[in-house]
Design a protein around this nucleic acid. Structure first.
Lengths: 335, 335
DNA sequence: TTGTAGGCGTTATCAT
DNA sequence: ATGATAACGCCTACAA
């Protein structure tokens, strides 16, 4: 690792001259600038980022803490974050909480010691269930935090949320009004999460307003979700529409309906949740509520960078990224 | 951010005393140790990691550069990396190359300026196609690199590879010998990658050895891969087995076969590629070659950490993680 | 135009 | 047992 000091020795000038020359300072003569830059290029000099960080007490690194990367929604969000950060020459340190409170705390504590300029986080399941907020509050005092999707209302920080209630409300209404469905089943594997609850409420509201009967199938992280769905459909042959609120059970439900020789969408309409590419792994191509993970990631990163660059303390914002219902072949009577 | 200096002022002792007391040095009296640690706890002192990094010229951070996170294989690998790193108190900076050479180079150049102690990388498609290796070679001189899956043979560094040839060879042989299939179609969307070529070779070898006719359907990143597969199956009604070598076209092929009223696995056996959880989104549950992404991630991280901790320069190793064929319901005459 | 000196926060060596 | 000093690599106000 070649340093300013070494360059200065080789050139018989002082360290500060080298430093200034490399930053093209007007104080330095063109002649020395040339000499310096030439040697710097030759030896492939690159300023040591750690030293720069210590000096400036800015790292240009963001800590990203997510529950999982195997959930394509979070993978998409992280991708969105990376896209925006890289445009602004920021790096990201990614930590995976695995839905564990303790792991999340460790990540925050470790990274908040000067390693990152800010955080973007979707809080772990356990954290949300136990309502533990101390690690966010203590870190948040000195380092800006942006929460997305999984958000804690009682923590004061910026947030990027999804209109979960509204989206599912509208999707359900669509099934009722446009598709004339009346026995609509909601399938959930995330009912203990705040986002899950909002989605279920959206469904319930639409069902109630239409004077219909609501049916919610909770899978409780069972190991055989497909079989549970199959059994349910067998025992409730009147179901004529299914809406799933996570990224995988929609496709399962579609497959199970087909297994029971139901025609989709003629006999049963299906709407899944997640991201647009889901449609490629199902036949017919599944209609989905696109959570816009990429968008959420970009928005979160921008929000955080704004907060970091503004000298005046902005008060925390909450932005909403609207989901979008993509109708494909599992809805509509004419597929 | 409270520093040693501040503590030392408040306690009327020198900075070095505080530093030693906090690291429980035997030079310091128990009395002062107590005084120091008490105040440190009270003020929630945490050593500044950047300063430690500058002093020790070790960052305890690994740079991870992958082509994508939307491909569940890479997401799984990154998860495996994180799991191992976190056990050893390392963090990771994740960069997504998006299959772009230029982005990959930028990431390497930026991070190699003291930001990370080592790299784990799966090289981008473009890099592999254009055979550009300079950024790896120049960085590799000073910083250890581990390549996984997408590997460049002419770069000297440690590698973690998959036995692609052997795995597909065996899977094909299984279809031929155990399932008595004779018209086996291979579907590929990654034929330009080295791993894709190895897989195709494994297939071809098995087919040739059995004296059968080989058929390879290349999708060329088409926007309507499902339709291409459907058309192919329509025009080649004699196909009695399908093997896909990427993570998504296997499920597509299964769905298309069903659409043509083929019974899977009675009429057609299907084997996909990817990871075990794929089976949850298909019906019947798809048989897959599990690439063991998690394992690959853990192995890569361990290999790198070994290299970092050993003072003697180990020469570079190449490890192999064996894939495993998981037979589910899309193979076998008795599902 | 160039050089000197000090400091970012920590740690290690060498006095006292 | 405690403190002073230097150093990691960079930057910059101030001197020369």
């Amino acid at each position: 690792m070649v340093t300013l000091k070494e360059l200065s020795k080789l050139l018989n000038v002082s360290v500060s001259t080298v430093s200034k020359a490399l930053s093209d300072s007007s104080e330095i003569s063109d002649a020395t600038k040339r000499r310096v830059t030439e040697l710097a290029n030759e030896l492939n000099y690159k300023p040591n980022r750690i030293a720069q960080q210590l000096k400036s007490s800015k790292t240009k690194v963001i800590g990203v803490v997510v529950p999982s990367l195997m959930n394509p929604f979070f993978a998409e969000v992280v991708h969105g974050i990376e896209t925006t950060l890289e445009q602004h020459n920021y790096d990201m340190t990614v930590c995976i909480s695995n839905e564990s409170l303790e792991k999340e705390q460790r990540s925050f504590n470790l990274l908040s010691t000067g390693s990152v300029d800010g955080f973007i986080v979707a809080v772990a399941r356990e954290t949300q269930n136990k309502h533990r907020v101390k690690h966010f509050e203590s870190v948040g005092k000195t380092t800006p935090i942006v929460m997305f999707d999984r958000v804690l209302n009682d923590v004061s920080c910026s947030k990027v949320v999804v209109d979960d209630f509204q989206t599912v409300y509208e999707a359900t209404k669509y099934l009722i009004e446009d598709e004339k469905r009346s026995q609509i089943l909601l399938i959930s594997n995330i009912e203990e999460l705040s986002v899950g609850q909002s989605r279920i409420k959206g469904y319930t509201r639409a069902i109630q307003e239409a004077g219909l009967h609501s049916s919610v199938l909770k899978l409780d992280n069972a190991s055989n979700p497909d079989e549970i769905i199959l059994r349910y459909l067998k025992n409730h042959t009147d179901i004529d529409a299914i809406i799933s609120i996570d990224h995988i059970t929609g496709i399962m439900a579609l497959n199970m309906a087909k297994k029971l020789n139901k025609n989709v969408p003629k006999d049963i309409s299906v709407i899944g949740f997640g991201y647009v590419d889901s449609k490629y792994v199902s036949s017919p191509r599944i209609s989905v509520v696109d959570q816009k993970g990429f968008e959420i990631g970009k928005t979160s990163a921008k929000l955080l960078l704004d907060e970091l660059s503004s000298d005046t303390k902005i008060k925390h914002k909450t932005l909403m990224v609207k989901s979008k219902l993509h109708l494909n072949e599992t809805t509509g009577t004419k597929p």
